[in-house]
Write a protein that binds this DNA or RNA. Structure first.
Length: 432
RNA sequence: UCCAGCGUAGCUCAAUGGUAGAGCCCCCGGCUGUUAACCGGGUUGUUGUAGGUUCGAGCCCUACCGCUGGAGCCA
């Protein structure tokens, strides 16, 4: 597409030529007879230098009157300049004010998280937030790219659902033409159906959890990528996950160095990430926790301190698998060597960022599934379609779901998950 | 839901139970290489709300509201 102006990220191709940049004034410094205008356009930041001798009086005063975040169109020749962080500067010869902003709330000084979240619609313009969401975009592209390279097809799962996918978690309820409906908390069961149609599939879907969780790792609306593959075993499922995570980390390291630098992310841990990841059983993980001084009984699920103890023992992500049947979902395939545990795994990220992926081989035997549903008191009628998948050409299959915001938090090194999504929905918080 | 901490100017924060303060923002002036620019001057308050103790409460007590972090649960 041919546009009548130039994006800052392309400015290096225009040295010596006069260009127009359309964007916003990020910051301004002035020295009486020279204005330094920090311009941003979403693709980058460049300094525009307006000297009194280079422009007429009206333009110079207009430059001096500019306020933070005013929208502007700036024209001038591009120069290489060793003093500029990006290596380039714009000598401003023309200035058009699109809109003069008044009293922009986010000043160049410190602000608390409550104030910033209240102004999230504006905070997104700040360099750190901008960098995070660019990394997020790269992560999502890497996931799509890896899966397509492996022959996976994107088959979106629905968001409005008639029933709970996993009965345990609290769901948001809504009204569907007079009938109750629920916002989906996972697309997994639906893509088990599309996997039987296409072989290898995935869905990029928001997931909703109406839990009263209030921590730096929880959102009520989050994005998940669920993948499902017919005939995949538990081991092949884990291979797929680790290859995908390596592809994601690799793409971010290759394409987002500027953003990672803005975020002051120490990339040393990320550079170490290579397949294969460590694999330990739930039983080994319990022993590890107890040795590390974080007591836990066999049969209990891991809490935050256990996550930290487990992940902290390894310098790359670690799979924990073969959890006791009792603490996992009804559809997970029991281990044929020990039916008291399931062929399911959680993948823990490094540096204490916790679980980012959960996956398992699914039960494909009709009678076994029906028995497990009964044990877990899962009603038959709403899941009749799901049981049908075991009735008509059932095959062994496996899949996993990755939490996008937790992955973004981990790769960006964030303190809080709320910065990993443009508009975070958290416990009792829905503005803006 | 439970536990802990915090609510003072638009923002970030000070203030032994004894006159309500600073920096930033904003406005005015100065400065041709600034990098959260700098220098001089100026405006800014029902101290979250309602009670209570006290000669006197921003400070102590009670309740409520809000915010932040954590727990449980999970990705």
């Amino acid at each position: 597409m041919k546009l009548g102006w130039t994006y800052i990220e392309d400015i290096g191709q225009h040295v010596g030529r006069t260009v127009t940049v359309k964007g916003w004034l990020y910051a301004k410094r002035s020295s009486g007879k020279i204005h330094f205008l920090q311009l941003r356009d979403g693709t980058g930041v460049i300094q525009g230098v307006m000297a009194r001798n280079d422009v007429d009086e009206t333009t110079f005063e207009l430059g001096g009157s500019l306020t933070q975040e005013s929208s502007v169109e700036v024209t001038g020749p591009v120069r290489e300049d060793s003093r500029a962080p990006s290596g380039y500067e714009l000598t401003v010869t023309g200035l058009k004010v699109v809109q003069l902003a008044k009293d922009y709330p986010i000043t160049p000084k410190e602000h608390g998280p409550a104030f910033l979240m209240e102004h999230r619609h504006l905070w997104l313009r700040s360099s750190k937030q901008h960098a995070i969401l660019r990394v997020r975009d790269t992560i999502e592209q890497a996931i799509h790219g890896y899966l397509h390279s492996q022959g996976f097809i994107h088959t979106p799962a629905p968001i409005l659902t008639p029933t709970a996918c996993e009965g345990t978690t609290t769901l948001f309820q809504t009204d569907y033409f007079g009938e109750p409906a629920f916002l989906s908390q996972s697309g997994q069961m639906y893509i088990e159906a599309t996997a039987a149609a296409f072989g290898k599939v995935y869905t990029f879907t928001p997931a909703f959890r109406a839990e009263k969780s209030k921590t730096r790792r929880h959102l009520t609306e989050l994005w998940m990528m669920d993948a499902e593959a017919s005939y995949f075993t538990h081991e092949e499922n884990m291979q797929c996950q680790e290859e995908m995570v390596c592809a994601v980390v690799g793409k971010v390291l290759a394409e987002c160095q500027t953003e990672l630098k803005t975020l002051e992310r120490d990339t040393a841990m990320l550079e170490k990430i290579r397949a294969p990841f460590h694999r330990i059983s739930y039983k080994q993980a319990v022993e590890l926790c107890n040795k590390a001084g974080v007591p836990i009984e066999y049969g209990e699920d891991f809490g935050a301190p256990h996550d930290t103890a487990i992940a902290g023992s390894f310098d790359r992500p670690v799979f924990v698998d073969r959890f006791p049947t009792t603490i996992k979902s009804f559809y997970m395939q029991p281990d044929p060597r020990d039916p008291s545990v399931v062929l399911g795994s959680d993948l823990y990220a490094t540096e204490g960022y916790g679980e980012i992926i959960g996956g398992s081989e699914r039960i494909h035997d009709l009678d076994l599934l029906l028995r497990k549903m009964e044990e877990h008191q899962v009603p038959y009628e709403p899941y009749k379609w799901y049981v049908d998948l075991r009735r008509y050409g059932s095959v062994p299959h496996a899949g996993f779901g990755i939490g996008i915001e937790r992955t973004v938090s981990w790769i960006c090194g964030l303190q809080h998950i709320r910065e990993a999504i443009p508009f975070a929905r958290m416990l009792e918080k829905i503005y803006p």
